[in-house]
């Protein structure tokens, strides 16, 4: 009688791993199917590009602007405008939305003329993740995407503006 009882409980206990494995198989199948259904598109690179266009073409941007004629001198950087305070005030980007670094380098002397950030703390927090994500094909909701871009500009001399915009996943 004891032996039968033991067999019964062993049989019953065996159903626990069976059900666990069944659930794992169901969830894995669901995961595989859902991974192929795209409901989201990452537009971080376009967002970064539009932001750069905005800084280069809009009167709110970093280029010279004649407030009398309203003319915007595209590509001619006003060094007084290229600082973190002004950029943050101009774009009002939330800390969780976007972070960016701008470095203006002289083409001839190759020295740094100006360096500024949008949400510097966020940029420094996100940079290691962005470097890792940018160099590998990792997945996950906490990903941060780097969007480096170089534009040729003119400030006091011919120069290039190297920017890295980091956008969150979503």
């Amino acid at each position: 009688m004891n032996k039968k009882g033991a067999t019964l409980s062993f049989e019953m206990l065996m159903w626990i791993p069976r059900l666990v494995f069944l659930i794992i198989v169901i969830m894995a199948t669901q995961g595989i199917i859902l991974a192929y259904i795209a409901t989201n598109v990452n537009v971080g690179s376009i967002e970064s590009h539009v932001l750069m266009q905005r800084l280069q073409f809009s009167p709110e941007g970093i280029v010279n602007h004649d407030s009398i004629t309203g003319r915007v001198y595209t590509g001619v950087v006003d060094l007084e405008k290229l600082n973190s305070h002004n950029l943050e005030a101009s774009l009002e980007a939330e800390k969780s939305e976007l972070a960016a670094r701008f470095v203006l380098i002289s083409l001839q002397a190759e020295n740094e003329l100006a360096r500024s950030y949008i949400n510097r703390e966020t940029y420094e927090d996100w940079q290691p993740i962005a470097i890792f994500v940018g160099s590998s094909d990792v997945a996950g909701t906490g990903r941060k995407f780097p969007h480096p871009e170089t534009r040729y500009m003119y400030s006091v001399e011919p120069s290039k503006l190297e920017t890295v915009v980091i956008t969150p996943n979503g």
């Binding site: 967002e47 932001l51 905005r54 009167p59 709110e60 602007h65 407030s67 007084e80 405008k81 305070h85 002004n86 005030a89 101009s90 774009l91 009002e92 980007a93 939330e94 939305e97 976007l98």
Partner: peptide, 18 residues
Amino acid sequence: YRVIGNSFSDQNYVSFDN
């Protein structure tokens, strides 16, 4: 979805430019 630099307020927007 977020819109960068968009407080969507009717208040005057003070910029470094002006």
